[in-house]
């Protein structure tokens, strides 16, 4: 009995703690006022209307650079994983660990390191610079994902296609790609989401001409404090997170999420 009570209290407190901040952002965004009350005294879309053009542009920038980085890094990491897994390259361990290194070094540090080379190359404060930084990080996860996908796919399919007369590239195009496509799609979704919310990696190389939304929101709170339009934008990002969850849950089923999230790091 006591144990049940303890469980109930624990669950209630923990869930409240997990839900509250998210709920607060959403509620506040509909009150159009920073004096948040849980009573929802007033309902307005002012906070959303107040979102300035700069936010939308930054949001569009974030989405496009995140999407492009996802696509490019998968275009590179899927063939790389195929070469490593199927080619039985003697240097597989070394290459694989090298590519994973940018993911082991903290993002903040990689960001600082990138700044040192990007400034002389005029890549800081540019779309290309942000894209490259994201790709360095995405390659690691993309490679790990695709290596796992390919290791899980029996080699016989490729050998069957080969013995039927298909050359290497044809095997890759007609057999490997279609067969791992569902897994790659899920990897893409995770990479994209990670790219949308990344902060520490991009903080130093971002600039006025290339500002991801999380960094714009960050500098606004530093410069101006909490403003309604920032809450509105934050709420939109919450919706994006929920949409992402819904998409993955529909693709995978909720029970697989726990395991998949693990592979995000470590």
């Amino acid at each position: 009995m006591l144990a049940r009570l303890a469980w109930a209290v624990y669950l209630t407190v923990l869930l409240a703690w997990l839900v509250f901040p998210i709920a607060l952002v959403v509620i506040a965004s509909f009150e159009g006022d920073l004096q948040v009350s849980l009573a929802l005294r007033q309902f307005s879309l002012d906070a959303y209307r107040a979102i300035p053009r700069g936010y939308w542009e930054s949001f569009r920038f974030t989405v496009s650079v995140a999407a492009l980085a996802t696509v490019c890094s998968l275009l590179i990491s899927v063939p790389a994983a195929w070469g490593l897994v199927r080619g039985r390259l003697p240097e597989r361990g070394v290459v694989s660990n090298l590519v994973l290194l940018p993911d082991i070094v903290p993002q903040l540090i990689l960001g600082i390191a990138l700044l040192t080379v990007f400034i002389p190359l005029r890549l800081s404060n540019s779309f290309a610079g942000v894209l490259l930084a994201l790709m360095a990080m995405n390659l690691a996860m993309g490679l790990r994902f695709s290596e796992a996908l390919l290791s899980g796919m029996a080699e016989e399919y490729e050998q069957a296609a080969q013995s039927l007369g298909a050359g290497r590239l044809t095997v890759f195009r007609l057999i490997v790609l279609p067969m791992i496509a569902p897994g790659v799609a899920i990897a893409a979704l995770f990479l994209f989401m990670q790219n949308l919310i990344v902060f520490e990696l991009l903080f130093f190389i971002a600039g006025p001409r290339a500002t991801p939304i999380s960094i714009l929101l960050f500098s606004d709170i530093i410069d101006r404090g909490v403003v309604p339009q920032a809450i509105g934008m934050s709420a939109l990002l919450v919706y994006a997170g929920i949409a992402f969850y819904a998409a993955v849950a529909m693709l995978l089923g909720p029970k697989y999420l726990a395991g998949t999230l693990m592979s995000r790091k470590g």
Binding site: S214, I215, L217, F218, S234, G241, V248, L257, A258, L261
Partner: peptide
């Protein structure tokens, strides 16, 4: 459990 992981730290 999942949605908070999909949020920027700023939010």
């Amino acid at each position: 459990i999942t949605v908070p992981r999909m949020l920027p730290f700023v939010v």
